[in-house]
Design a protein around this nucleic acid. Structure first.
Lengths: 346, 346
DNA sequence: CTGAAAGCGCTTACAG
DNA sequence: CTGAAAGCGCTTACAG
């Protein structure tokens, strides 16, 4: 009778608990705690009958294993983090989506840590989540290279759209999409392209500008950069005058947000897109298709990028990765209303 | 000489480490590990001079405290989780933003765990992150009530836009925004409103329909529901025929996505919005302002909702909350192009 | 103010 | 196949 009404043992974790531990299971099943641990995690290392007894006890006690406690001796939490600067950025969340699904396939949980604001907060956030996870994905990060390298010393780390040292960088090849875009513009009669640049220190901005430059030169089109600009609608609005003053008949923006801002300002100023000039962006964000006019843009398979980031991390962590055909990660043009035949004269 | 070149000690956490522990600091500083712990975390409990010595040693060794190890005895990780069904949902990410900032203010890190797909995956995700955090925010969750209550037994939990049992539910009051909307439509001559309903089991859908119903009745307008529908653009497209067939001159959709889908289908079918009928949504999502036509919508202060969710959690966790004036969490109408004078006859 | 000890809930060599 | 012990890196009563 004395053992029956186990006193509500006060507890420290969280507020409520009395959560069962493997010791409770061991007592109920009449075995050693180490046997419980093995029964629950090492299939086949324990006799079928005791395993059954242990599982029964675990179920009865509604046992929930404590991954924090397990992480201490093993050094593994089966969790990975995506550290991002801006969750609302469609590039980011499609990537995260892909990463999430891939992580689940390997029995890992993906957690997302955002940190808008400044790079210093992003750094702090990364540092704070690092201890909890087995690996880190940095998606379009603004972190200084030095900090990234330091982080990578602590945990396996892969980046998306950003190069640093020898670290893995999953980056869709921008060239095919940009070639298509320039070809498209040239065929519409455009002879001069202005590139509305993104953030100065952005790795991907440099890649885009470089590829655009090369593609335009190869076709004998004039090309120049207007920038740097923040990657936002507001910045696009602000850049309108400079874009118009440039005399280019086609404006390629660093991303869709800038392009949308530009279009908004054009409409407010009474200019017509694509009547007066054509506009294109990058990323094919949510809204690009129902904008007015809808936006021509270069898009990448970000789900796949996220998936690959996880696979790369799994390899570093030491998890067996299901090998897949290694098609190049590419980009492609999506033609919509914002690009059209160049006006006769300007 | 023998102590100098500490061998690269192989380690288990993550892949690389040799990370210093408080024992290393203790050795270097010539004190007991418990003193190190106190020096680093309990200001004033250790003499200034030993504290200085300890901090110097910590710095020298580049000590990074291990929050996992700390969590075991304390039961606290200073981390909270936002479990969401869809990160791309603007309602969700604005809420998360608010929560994030608030959490930072209290020295907590917010992690986001998404789980698109089915409710069962969402449940699994919630269960997986629960052990790592001190509290959970469920934003517009699809989880069955039973599961939510079970989760709440394990950790402090607050919800946003969803009621379950006695749990805290942070939900902006939809009434003011809806009253404004109905007033607006009535003043434009609309006599009949169709509500394009959201998901059948959505708590917030019920709230919106109820408030719309009441507001319309109070003004003598006809009102009826068409639904249920998924809260997506695609579903809005599919609902167009039913909406048109209903003969209503104003369609209020459960959310902006549905409204945008409806508008898209209307355009494809050659119908005019707002010429043939007016359309309004809820949430004021990204894109609502540059859609074609731009969308009239009812919006709430979601940043504030996120902030309050965190404050509520902090109270439950036992953290002192900075009290603020407790203004009601409200909603308001944003008038744009998609609503206009009702057509004469239909 | 500081030390020595016990404990948080697990895992994993080491024996047998 | 299973048990007993040690250890993961911290914290916190308990003494002194």
């Amino acid at each position: 009778m004395s053992d029956v009404s186990e006193p509500q043992r006060p507890t420290r974790n969280g507020r409520k608990s009395g959560a069962a531990t493997i010791y409770d299971i061991a007592r109920v099943a009449g075995v050693n705690p180490s046997t419980v641990s093995r029964a629950l995690n090492k299939p086949g290392r324990v006799s079928a009958t005791t395993e059954a007894r242990i599982r029964a006890a675990a179920a009865e006690l509604n046992f929930q294993e404590n991954p924090l406690a397990r992480a201490l001796p093993t050094g593994r939490t089966n969790t990975i983090a995506a550290v991002v600067a801006d969750m609302t950025n469609p590039v980011v969340f499609n990537t995260v989506r892909g990463a999430e699904n891939a992580a689940a396939r390997y029995g890992f949980t993906l957690i997302v840590a955002e940190s808008q604001e400044s790079g210093s907060i992003e750094a702090a956030t990364a540092d704070r989540v690092a201890p909890f996870v087995d690996g880190i994905i940095l998606a379009t990060t603004r972190l200084p290279e030095e900090h990234i390298l330091r982080l990578a010393e602590r945990k396996p780390l892969v980046m998306i759209n950003r190069a640093a040292g020898e670290l893995v960088n999953i980056a869709p090849d921008v060239t095919p999409g940009i070639e298509e875009l320039v070809e498209h513009l040239a065929s519409l009669g455009h002879r001069s392209i202005a590139y509305l640049g993104g953030p100065a220190r952005s790795w991907i901005n440099t890649r885009r500008w470089q590829a655009l430059f090369d593609a335009a030169r190869a076709r004998g089109l004039a090309v120049f950069e207007i920038g740097p600009n923040s990657p936002t609608i507001a910045a696009g609005t602000l850049a309108f005058e400079r874009a118009q003053a440039s005399g280019a008949s086609a404006i390629v923006a660093y991303n869709d947000l800038l392009a949308l801002g530009l279009i908004r300002a054009a409409r407010e100023q009474g200019a017509s897109v694509p009547g007066d000039f054509s506009v294109a962006g990058f990323d094919d964000i949510f809204g690009a298709d129902f904008a007015n006019p809808s936006l021509t843009t270069v898009r990448a398979d970000l789900l796949e990028a996220g998936t690959r980031a996880v696979e790369s991390l799994m390899r570093e962590i030491g998890v067996d990765v299901i090998e897949r055909p290694d098609a190049p990660l590419s980009t492609a043009l999506v033609v919509r209303e914002s690009t059209a035949v160049a006006p006769r004269a300007r």
